[in-house]
Design a binder for these strands. Structure first.
Lengths: 99, 99
DNA sequence: GACTCTATCTATAATGT
DNA sequence: TACATTATAGATAGAGT
């Protein structure tokens, strides 16, 4: 999206990379908020820039999200101990980055 | 984006909400991946659906992201103790959700 | 860097199967 | 209820300030 199509690979020029980071960071935070509201989801998003700065968003609190994440993972772990096939319950969210 | 404009509020119809969740979840995961690659950032994204299912993405590992998040927060905390004005360092990433 | 502009690309709401 | 289509709203690359 934009004046030209881009390939998804690290942007070499540091100024361009920073500008793109700023724009896309805003974009993804907006998407996270919309998803949380529209779909009644709990969302936590943590981003460290290449310079090490932290940016974060959560519609609840990051502590709540991380705690819930840990519990959810523990439960998955217990499932795996009980049933070796339960890894099928782990949802893979992949999207092709071609183009 | 789409055939009609939508207002950002909880989708009442549960079927529509689930469909939108699926589409937008894919969209935001793609955005997270692109941001990580293009801008050389470390990204962690945790989403719990309204039915409680966990979906996650990290370009490194979620453990790494959460650990780094904790450290970064600790440092911010120390800064705050040392310098009461350092809360200005906390980056606010807000985007209006109007339209 | 942060902001504006806008042409163009992308995501997705609504619809069809 | 998942998949495919498509018209359109939205995001953003590139350029200028």
């Amino acid at each position: 999206m934009g004046r030209g199509k881009i390939v998804i690979r690290r942007i070499d020029n540091s100024t361009s990379r920073q500008v793109t980071f700023s724009k896309r960071r805003n974009g993804i935070f907006k998407k996270a908020k919309e998803l949380a509201i529209l779909c009644d989801a709990e969302v936590g998003l943590i981003i460290f820039s290449s310079t090490g700065r932290l940016y974060e968003y959560s519609n609840t609190s990051m502590k709540s999200v991380i705690d819930r994440y840990g519990k959810s993972k523990d439960e998955q772990q217990q499932d795996n101990v009980a049933n070796p096939y339960s890894e099928l319950k782990v949802y893979i969210c992949s999207t092709k980055l071609i183009n």
